[in-house]
Amino acid sequence: MCTLLPITIDKLTLTAGQKTLLNNISLNITSSGILVIMGPNGAGKSLFMRCLHGLSQPDSGRILFAGDEINQTHRKSQALIFQKPVLLKRSVRQNLEFVRNLHRTDNVASIELALRNVGLSKLASQPANQLSGGERQRLALARALMMRPQMLFLDEACANLDPASVSNIEEVLRQACKDGQKIILITHDIAQAKRLADEVIFLHHGALCEHTPARVFFQSPKSQAARAYLDGQILV
């Protein structure tokens, strides 16, 4: 079970100049499973996720993991997959070795297993920067899961990937979820959200519009914005 739950987000606000990027967001994330964050471009999804992971600092408001402010220990049990994977200019295997050598704990998956999970075993000694987009993202996922994080963030990790890679990643996420890891993912792909989501958060203009179980969200969204978004309208 994930010991970082519940996440308590209290009046989270972040502004840049005149613009309010995150507007007074408050919610509790209590249940395990897959949480999907949705919303139009510029809604503040990535920034919200960065705040959760401690990469960006809010101007005001608090985020508590099981009652504590975020600290290094929390971050060590979290992992974040960026939309554009950042890999070291080394072989596939050495990218994983780098993470394994970082923190000397026994709680590390074997590199072979991690590679097999994402279907990269045959490419282990290839230079990472020669991989395709999908392979790169799968390597990033393998690297994130190496440390057996309790909480996994994915920031549009499947955007513009080949279907095989997307399918592989979703499968890995479902398995991770079964293993008790909390998964929070941003996606623009409504079909993917339907396939994966247990709960959905919908953001618009930096504000929280909805936080509902997935089934409710897709059948009868409460907010006007979410309804329009699901209908495929452009939200301004």
Binding site: L55, R75, A79, F82, V86, L88
Partner: peptide, 24 residues
Amino acid sequence: EEYRDLFISLVVPPPNALLTYLIE
């Protein structure tokens, strides 16, 4: 610029990050 977020996320200690930059 490229690796900062990743290294914060992975909690890479600064000396280790520096060494990695030099090798990269």
